[in-house]
């Protein structure tokens, strides 16, 4: 579990995004137990307060639930998980579109490239099972 942090975005948000991605990709099943705050801080080599803040943020976004001093769990609420997926996809697309716009590519050319790229891309992903 190594996150490449970038120094300009709040670290706790990057931790939250990291966990959102894992939930979206199903690497973290609904209801599964989250790693403890201390383990996470040591592993990620970040400030324990930041991990604390990330967990608080995730609780606010109902991504996880924590009963009294028991380890936090991923939410079992399906449409929360679905919402995360669409959020992540929209975000990725937004970033993609932003970076593509500068190259003023026509829509058709764009769609065609994505089809080809995405077609092959999909193929590779499934076979290697990342």
């Amino acid at each position: 579990m190594i996150i490449q942090f970038n120094t300009r975005a709040p670290v706790y948000m990057q931790v939250v995004d990291y966990f959102k991605k894992k939930m979206a990709l199903g690497e973290l099943q609904a209801g599964e137990e989250m790693p403890s705050r201390r383990e996470l801080a040591t592993e990620l080599k970040i400030n324990p307060n930041t991990v604390q803040k990330a967990f608080k943020e995730m609780e606010e976004q109902q991504l996880i639930t924590t009963e009294r001093n028991r380890p936090s769990r991923v939410t079992t609420d399906e449409h929360v998980l679905k919402r995360i997926r669409t959020e992540l996809v929209d975000e990725a697309v937004a970033v993609f579109v932003e970076s593509i716009q500068e190259l003023d590519v026509t829509m058709d050319e764009l769609v065609d490239k994505i089809k080809r790229q995405y077609g092959e891309g999909n193929l590779d992903d499934r076979s290697t099972g990342s």
């Binding site: 120094t7 300009r8 975005a9 706790y12």
Partner: peptide, 14 residues
């Protein structure tokens, strides 16, 4: 530090 990253998107080095 985290507020500055959140609000201004600047790292300490910046």
């Amino acid at each position: 530090v985290e507020d500055v990253r959140f609000i201004h998107g600047k790292s300490i080095v910046d």
